[in-house]
Design a protein around this nucleic acid. Structure first.
Lengths: 215, 215
DNA sequence: TAATCAATATACCCATGGGTAAATAAAATA
DNA sequence: TATTTTATTTACCCATGGGTATATTGATTA
């Protein structure tokens, strides 16, 4: 065994001296931590009642630190909402590429949708009303939510076309599904006995019942 | 025609001099006007973003006038919420006394429920999160909402017993229905083309589809 | 007519909290 | 070693808005 092979484990030891890539990672980690603390505070108290001082205190830092990693309060909220929307968007894309009938794909998507809505950032999407945002942000927000809704409507339409879904009013079916699966963002307790996945399955089964063709 | 009959119309003329009953009525009217202005402001901007100064200004009065007719800001909100809850409660009681199968009664109630949720005070019930309230008010609020939910569950149970509703999980069925029918409080536009009654009927049909026994 | 009460306004107090300027310390780079 | 950059703090500014003390006016009642 050549001598030069030995120091590998030594150089791999955790070092307090970070190189450039590590520093960028540190920064990203801190940014993510700020965002998570903020979204939890927003969800627990509501946007207006959650102060940045409290968010900072929950991380053991001071308020300007938040401004160092993210912009002003609205930008923090927008970033939280965008995280949630991206998760939903990814789920919709995955469902669109998945095999199976329209009903199957819709069901798979809705299970994921409901789980996201019970998670930190998804919850924030549901609980954020447009009135909280500036005009520009509200327009973008609406557009991104609309994309998700269009994906749902598309899946319903395909299901109707392939006979796996009853010929319902597509617009109202998507509203009803969204309502049923958004609502847990308000009542589900993450520390309670039921996991998001369990809740999601129960709700999706009931909500989809109304769209299933009758024997 | 005796002379004494003529002055009747004269004494019935609108007079600026109000008697005691009329003064009490005036007061009640003003109180109601303040409440309506407040609930609309709360619904449009959210509780925290709606200032009492603005509510007062929208009525052409000053802030202390609000304190004269109602208490502090939280009391105004509580009163708005209670109005909405009373409407829902009345609807639940009426449905419980109505004839027909469990499914019929549930359907009639849900139509009313959905409409109330699109009205000023019902909207406020949906949009008011417990975090906005003091501990005491939140406990009362939860209890009153629970009454409504219990009524829904009772109707579902009766429907299952009489065979008009499929044997679903009662708890989750009530959650799913509530979600689907609460959601319009967020998106329905009172000035839009669809009336609350139309929206209600479409949504109830789809939402109840999942609870209907299969042929 | 005097005393009281109801309705309303003006003018204020003050806590909260978003946002920033400026200082410091530590590390990275030249 | 000198300079710059990054991370973070302390200390502050100031607008908003809930809430109140007090004055005013006009009607009610004794």
């Amino acid at each position: 065994m050549p001598k030069s092979a030995v120091p590998v484990s030594a150089t791999a030891l955790p070092s307090p001296f970070r190189n450039k890539a590590e520093r960028e990672q540190d920064r990203a980690d801190k940014r993510a931590a700020v965002l998570l603390a903020a979204v939890r505070m927003f969800n627990a108290r509501g946007y207006h009642a959650a102060s940045l001082d409290d968010v900072a205190a929950s991380l053991g830092v001071s308020k300007p630190t938040i401004y160092h990693y993210l912009g002003n309060k609205e930008q923090v909220l927008v970033e939280c909402v965008n995280r949630g929307l991206s998760m939903l968007r990814d789920a919709a894309d995955a469902a669109a590429r998945a095999p199976g009938s329209g009903h199957d794909r819709l069901r798979a998507f809705l299970l994921r949708y409901a789980c996201i809505n019970m998670d930190d950032f998804g919850r924030c999407v549901i609980r954020t009303n447009e009135e909280l945002l500036s005009m520009d942000s509200a327009i973008q927000f609406r557009a991104r939510k609309r994309e998700i809704d269009d994906a749902v409507r598309g899946m319903i339409a395909e299901g109707i076309a392939d006979g796996s879904i009853a010929p319902v009013d597509i617009r109202f079916a998507s509203f009803a599904l969204a309502g049923a699966l958004n609502w847990p963002a308000r009542w589900h307790d993450p520390d309670g006995p039921m996991s998001p996945a369990e809740v999601a399955e129960k709700l999706v089964d009931i909500a989809l019942g109304g769209l299933t063709p009758r024997g």
